[in-house]
């Protein structure tokens, strides 16, 4: 794995090189600033497989650098591990929003650092495998409705693996009380069956933008997990209650100024499940509250069955158990 390590402190860079190379990661390039990193990325013959960026650097900081790298086509999915000497919530939120996949804190714990890099290594291998599979598959085959589709360039939206990372880090560091809420937009099923992959992705992005807007202020990160379901995780005390969320979603999803796609119906509805929170007895790495948010959504929809003939079926089971 070819890694680019960016830090303005030469001793930190050397330390990282020592730790990484002792664990078998020997193909390491160093840069002493964001600007130097961009030059080295542009000049690289063989692409980098992983980036490690210090958040706080003079000039271009690690967050701006991450945003620049995410704008480069070959590096849209490449793992970016941020290096930070602080547990400052704002920096971490901004780093994830800019496209970071993980972070490590200074002073370094060697075991934790290597665990993070191995995770990045696996993520990169998985991304490459999925990309090759997608290329080799017939282009006419659409992603099944039950599967997750990445939502790009919508504030707060990340893929489900990054959402899990974000939640784990928050739980580990007890940064603030978390809650998860699941939202189902059932009409996406009709959109999916009656449109191409590109059209579906386009409509999905519009719906995701509305979800992002209703969650604004909740410091939330969100992922689309398939079957019309969005999973949102944010500050427990800042996520609006279910009724408010549902009412806001209905109004905003059906805003006449919002044109999704010429051939797509615009009478969307939304069902919001009761929020779920981590329980006191659950260990810090336990993500079962995400499962509970999805179960709460199913329960809410089942309660509506008497009034609605539609059933929420076929959603692929996603397990977040520890």
């Amino acid at each position: 794995m070819k890694i680019l390590v960016v830090d303005d402190d030469d001793l930190i860079r050397e330390l990282l090189v020592e730790i990484l190379s002792a664990h078998g990661y020997e193909h390491i390039v160093q840069a002493d600033s964001g600007e130097d990193a961009l030059r080295k990325i542009q000049a690289a013959g063989e692409a980098f497989d992983c980036f490690m960026f210090d958040i706080q650097m003079p000039g271009m900081d690690g967050i701006d650098l991450c945003r620049e790298v995410r704008g480069m086509t070959p590096y849209k999915q490449t793992p970016v591990v941020m290096i930070t000497a602080m547990n400052n919530r704002d920096y971490i939120d901004r780093a994830f929003s800019a496209g970071a996949t993980d972070y490590v804190t200074k002073p370094f714990d060697t075991t934790e650092l290597i665990t993070r890099i191995r995770l990045a290594d696996r993520l990169q291998a998985e991304t490459r495998r999925a990309s090759e599979a997608a290329t080799s598959a017939a282009t006419t085959v659409k992603t099944p409705y039950s599967e997750a589709v990445p939502v790009k360039e919508i504030r707060g939206f990340v893929n489900s693996a990054i959402l899990e990372n974000y939640v784990l880090i928050n739980l580990e560091q007890k940064q603030f009380p978390l809650a998860a809420v699941a939202i189902h937009v059932p009409e996406l099923s009709v959109v999916h069956s009656g449109s191409s992959e590109d059209e579906f992705t386009f409509v999905l992005a519009d719906v995701a933008e509305v979800v992002s807007d209703v969650m604004v202020g909740a410091q939330a990160f969100m992922a689309y997990i398939g079957s019309g379901v969005f999973l949102c995780v944010g500050h427990r005390n800042k996520i609006p209650d279910e009724d408010t969320l549902q009412s806001d979603l209905l109004i905003m999803l059906n805003d006449p100024d919002l044109v999704y796609c010429a051939d797509v119906q615009t009478n969307f509805s939304a069902k919001v499940g009761q929020r779920a929170t981590p329980k006191l007895f659950e260990k810090r790495g336990d993500l079962r509250f995400l499962d509970r948010a999805l179960e709460n959504l199913e329960a809410a929809e089942q309660a509506d069955v008497a009034n609605r003939s539609r059933k929420f079926t076929g959603r692929k089971k996603v397990s977040f158990a520890a």
Partner: peptide, 11 residues
């Protein structure tokens, strides 16, 4: 201080 904070503990 930020630089020292990051490095000193590790070494």
């Amino acid at each position: 201080a930020h630089k020292l904070h990051g490095l000193a503990g590790t070494v």
